[in-house]
Design a protein around this nucleic acid. Structure first.
Lengths: 349, 349
DNA sequence: TTGTAGGCGTTATCAC
DNA sequence: GTGATAACGCCTACAA
């Protein structure tokens, strides 16, 4: 489309071609590229015209070499939820859209002994400006320390503040879970079951705390047999559902620490002929695609993951964004309770 | 862990440090790095020892500059199915794991007029060695031509061969869809509905062809009212389900062109009290997480997407993979029919 | 405010 | 086979 006038030789034009055409030194061109303040408007205009005319695009590899730093930011993740990762990715890409940055993706294996070394090698090799850590690996302090040591900026994404605001974007999961559970209580539920997240995950702990807070506020308790273990997988939901719905006096509502497990519980309910939501209310967490694909549609907590991607990028590289980008201030973003068809008053009310 | 002996000054050691330590020229070190054939075993050993000793890692930015090419491959996608994208991504990363390559991710907006220009800018700026195009944008011939023109290698992923084998990794969707439908017919179904994919998508066309082939082989026809439009979204499944299940003589089985739409159809069935699979069999396509999260679990076609990611990377950059990597030959990978609980003989059989 | 010289870490050229 | 020397395209330091 654009008149891509190539430099002599048919190659990509370089800073030298621009300098020659504009009748200035290449350093001056460099100053224009890097938005130096010390430039006459006239000079700048002349250079910009030449750039336009040649269709010049600065070579990022050369800049990376000279800057001793790549114009890349990295996304490190070990998240089983594809939609979450991808939504976050989209957010990041939306944020860096008009900048010179590109996004590098790096899944890591948190169960591997070599994880830290792998990440170190990756960061040393690619030298990204910064790295964004998605949960659950964002909870790993060693990883943050590694970034710090290597001079790679980092931002951790979490369900609760994990670090100082400069290094953390989080949501208020606990509060929203409590809100969701209060909703169940307001509907009349008193026998409320809980399916936990995996041990050692901050997100799981936050959700559990929020759940217990809401119960405590209402003067309710969580009987041991209503407290089912889980690991964020569908199969754990199946097991929890089997356990909870086989009780002599089963719960009338179950809060599951994520949507996948909620889907598992719901499958068990269907299999046992337990009507949702008439006989059993179910709430999940994530607002994953699953939440709307199952029947009845699942009430859940929506994580502002796309927004978190944007904010994470903004926090990580405010100085590399396109000029004029509006950057939000808050590091804690609000999750929201989304009520759908899986919730109703308890039977007989 | 490794004894990272730094070069004088505490920085990363460079090729000069290695050359000095090994007592050779830096070009010789370069030859070792790039696996040149013209080297004495003795020289090579000496250099490798020095590399080891210093913990030297070649600077990819400098290499990129000298090679006039980045050690990056790009994944271009505009796929609504997060799991598909991420599984593919994993495959690619598995394939390039022990190489010097890194993966750049670039979502594109196929509905935008500026799409082609955006991709051009991206490719010119980043200069990746190659690009991998996921469906549906893989079906865009202009995009392939653009890569060709820019000297960026490319591989297209598709449901059927879209290009010569050198540039295409595909699956045999048509055959497998036919197989799935034959299974329905074998169970006794004669009234089989179809929910189409979006117009203009090759994947949709392939699935439809396979479906019709199986019907024709059995001497069956697809009545117009059994042929519902769709766009791969859940809501389209809802609409199709409403239409098909409201017919005076509804189908006893429905093949949906993807899982999301199948989930929609299933929700409608639940809502209408139509028992799945007793009164209605449903088959989807993708084997997405949704397939196992809904109840009853959905029979579907599994796309070998992770494997396709591996093969795509191998096809794209066979010369950059870790030495000794076994590269498969076939460009057509097999999808498989996965039978789950959503399929049974028709009522009254 | 602008320009000159030199360097970033690697590879290509072309002798030896 | 191996090694000087000159790129690669851009930036920093310092000079003007």
């Amino acid at each position: 489309m654009a008149a891509q006038n190539k430099a002599p030789g048919g190659k990509q034009p370089t800073i030298n071609d621009v300098a020659a055409l504009a009748g200035v030194s290449k350093k001056t061109v460099s100053r224009v590229i890097n938005r130096s303040e010390f430039l006459t408007d006239k000079t700048r205009a002349a250079v910009e015209k030449a750039i336009e005319q040649l269709g010049f695009v600065p070579n990022p590899q050369a800049r990376a070499l000279a800057f001793r730093r790549n114009f890349l930011i990295a996304l490190l993740h070990d998240n089983p939820n594809a939609q979450t990762v991808l939504n976050f990715q989209r957010g990041v890409l939306d944020a860096i859209k008009d900048s010179d940055l590109a996004l590098l993706v790096r899944p890591v294996d948190r169960t591997s002994d070599a994880m830290l070394e792998d990440v170190r090698t990756f960061l040393e090799k690619q030298r990204p400006i910064g790295a964004m850590l998605l949960p659950p690996i964002s909870e790993n302090d060693d990883l943050a320390a590694l970034c710090e040591n290597l001079g790679v900026r980092y931002v951790r994404i979490g369900s609760a503040p994990l670090d100082d605001a400069k290094h953390c974007i989080s949501s208020n999961d606990r509060e929203v879970v409590a809100e969701a559970v209060r909703r169940l209580i307001a509907l009349g539920h008193r026998r409320i079951g809980f399916v936990r997240g995996p041990v050692g995950f901050r997100s799981a702990a936050e959700r559990e705390t929020g759940f217990l807070e809401a119960l405590a506020d209402a003067g309710l308790e969580l009987p041991a047999e209503f407290n089912a273990p889980g690991n964020y997988r569908y199969t754990a939901g199946i097991e929890a559902g089997e356990a909870l719905l086989s009780l002599a006096a089963p719960p009338t509502a179950i809060f599951c620490s994520n949507d996948e497990m909620a889907a598992g519980v719901m499958s068990v309910a269907h299999g046992k002929g337990v009507k949702v939501p008439e006989q059993l209310s179910i709430i999940g967490f994530d607002d994953s695609p699953t939440a709307t694909h199952i029947w009845p549609a699942l009430s859940t907590v929506r994580w502002p993951i796309h927004e978190m991607g944007i904010r994470a990028a903004q926090t990580l590289v405010p100085d590399f964004l396109a000029p004029g980008t509006k950057v939000a201030e808050d590091a804690v973003l609000a999750s929201t309770f989304v009520e759908r068809q899986s919730v109703a008053p308890p039977p007989g009310s």
